[in-house]
């Protein structure tokens, strides 16, 4: 049956996209109903979301990780580029299965092995990476000249910029230094540090507002543009 014909006979309104979009509209309104007051419809939508998300995560992980990384190399090697069974994947697969021992009190000690393995790998990767990526480059970029020269002349604006950076870093560090009482010059520097922190939090809050409003805009765009397109397709 052609799409136009389906619309004419009404069968179109029983198709997956229409039903799916209808469910999405109802769930969107159910979630936003919380803004008026907590209610059972919101609770239902919230629980449904948690359940569906968990199930979706399991399905995606099975299809994109378990199948190609464990099942195929062991039992369906013809699906892998090498075409040969790779028995070494039994080791990580076993480590992964040992995680599930947490569900059985008698055997939950087994889960410590994969956790220890993951912590070791994680720390080994993260510690040097953090020093190399964040700590050292950001330390270097904090050490800027206070009287920078550009084309043989003093670049005053960049100098002010660098001075602000220096004052900000030193004062915020003083704010977080708790071995000395925050009074006198130390106290003044600490209060200046608070101002720098407040400005940073303000920038963060402004971005957070933008992000949250964007989510609402996404839902409104869905209701305003996508829903009419699905519910009222062009006539045949």
């Amino acid at each position: 049956m052609e799409p136009g014909e389906a619309v004419a006979t009404g069968m179109y309104y029983l198709s997956g996209p229409v039903i799916g979009t209808g469910v999405a509209v109802l769930l969107t309104l159910a979630i936003y109903s919380f803004l008026y007051a907590d209610n059972p419809v919101y609770k239902f939508a919230e629980h449904l979301f948690v359940g569906v998300s968990a199930a979706y995560g399991v399905a995606i992980t099975y299809h994109m990780a378990v199948l190609p990384l464990i099942i195929d190399p062991l039992f369906r090697p013809q699906n892998t580029p090498s075409g040969q069974p790779q028995y070494w994947v039994i080791i990580p697969a076993l480590l992964g299965l040992m995680m599930f021992s947490r569900f059985f009190r008698r055997y939950d000690w087994m889960s410590r092995w994969p956790i220890a393995f993951m912590m070791g790998i994680g720390a080994g990767l993260a510690i040097p990476a953090t020093v190399q990526t964040s700590l050292l480059p950001h330390l270097y970029s904090t050490m800027q000249p206070l009287a920078p020269m550009a084309e043989g002349r003093l670049d005053l604006l960049t100098g002010i910029d660098n001075l602000l950076l220096l004052v900000g870093v030193v004062c915020v560090l003083i704010y977080f230094y708790f071995s000395l009482e925050h009074k006198g010059v130390f106290g003044v520097a600490s209060r200046v540090g608070i101002w720098f922190l407040m400005i940073a939090f303000g920038a963060g809050f402004g971005n957070t507002v933008m992000a949250r409003i964007s989510l609402l805009i996404g839902r409104v765009q869905f209701l305003r543009f996508d829903v009419p397109e699905i519910f009222f397709p062009p006539s045949p």
């Binding site: 950001h138 933008m210 992000a211």
Partner: peptide
């Protein structure tokens, strides 16, 4: 990145570790 995360990446712009940053919907 999403706007809520954008401020975390400004230091990486200053150190030239990234060439640019696209901040949320804007």
């Amino acid at each position: 990145v999403t706007a809520v995360m954008a401020t975390d990446f400004y230091p990486y712009l200053q150190t030239d570790q990234i060439v640019g940053l696209i901040n949320g919907l804007k």
